[in-house]
């Protein structure tokens, strides 16, 4: 079974009388364990696709299967549950909860998944150690550097062991060194078996991925594997 299967997907935004065709007949298959970079200029439709894959938005037409489940008619709360279990988000602007220490931030998805307090804490500490922040657990987000914040966000994304990590311009607010650091973490996570989708417009970032999908005006104009990768996955 494919992890993600997108068939003839269209997304049309209506603002007043103006219609914006953000995605046009998109078809994508993504397997477990892939590391994909989705590229394109702003307005190319890559963020719209990201929102749909992340179950934050619904397609106008076409089909989207996530681990065999068609994401279409679910209620807002059902989508919340799917996001909680299946998707780990990493955002450009980190999106940590302010005035809440980073341990609590990492625990948050597990609270909604109703994991017991003890297990939550153990798991959160384990994940923070994995991203090298074990000595910062009681710090508040605004006491951390950009790179550190993004590492917290990655730890949070991993909290419920979701099949996909969805990163939307994860290095957009970071300097070169931190960007490299974050991408190395993604690389490492992918080597450990996590599926990762990164939306970016930077080639420096995209080079870490095994597969690159390029969008332009709502359509895929390029979808290629790095050399040797296909064999490795097969």
């Amino acid at each position: 079974m494919e992890m993600i299967n997108i068939e003839n997907l269209n997304k049309i935004y209506k603002t007043g009388s103006v219609e914006v065709h953000a995605l046009k007949n998109v078809n994508i298959e993504i397997k477990h364990g892939e590391f994909i970079a989705i590229m394109g200029h702003s307005g190319s439709g890559k963020s719209t696709l990201m929102n749909i894959i992340g179950c934050l938005d619904r397609p106008t037409s076409g089909k989207y299967f996530l681990e065999g489940v068609e994401i279409d008619k679910q209620s807002a709360d059902e989508l919340s549950l799917i996001r909680n279990k299946k998707i780990g988000f990493v955002f450009q602007s980190f999106n940590l909860i302010p005035r809440t220490n980073i341990l609590r931030n990492v625990e948050l998805p597990m609270i909604y998944a109703k994991v017991s307090a003890k297990q939550r804490r153990e798991k959160a500490l384990e994940l923070l150690e994995k991203v090298g922040l074990q000595d910062r657990v009681n710090h508040l987000p605004n006491e951390l550097s950009g790179g550190q914040k993004q590492r917290v966000a990655i730890a949070r994304a991993l909290a419920n062991n979701p099949p996909i990590i969805l990163a939307d311009e994860p290095t957009g607010n970071l300097d070169t060194n931190s960007s490299e650091e974050i991408m190395k973490i993604f690389r490492k996570l992918n080597n450990e078996g996590n599926s990762i989708i990164v939306v970016t417009h930077e080639h420096e970032v995209a080079k870490y991925a095994d597969r690159i999908i390029v969008f332009k005006d709502g359509s895929i104009i390029e979808d290629r594997m790095k050399e040797g990768v296909e064999n490795y996955l097969a």
Partner: peptide
């Protein structure tokens, strides 16, 4: 608003 958005993205349901 943003905090609410983050929480919802992370799996918070309406009643949470």
């Amino acid at each position: 608003t943003r905090e609410i958005g983050i929480k919802k993205a992370l799996g918070a349901r309406t009643k949470d």
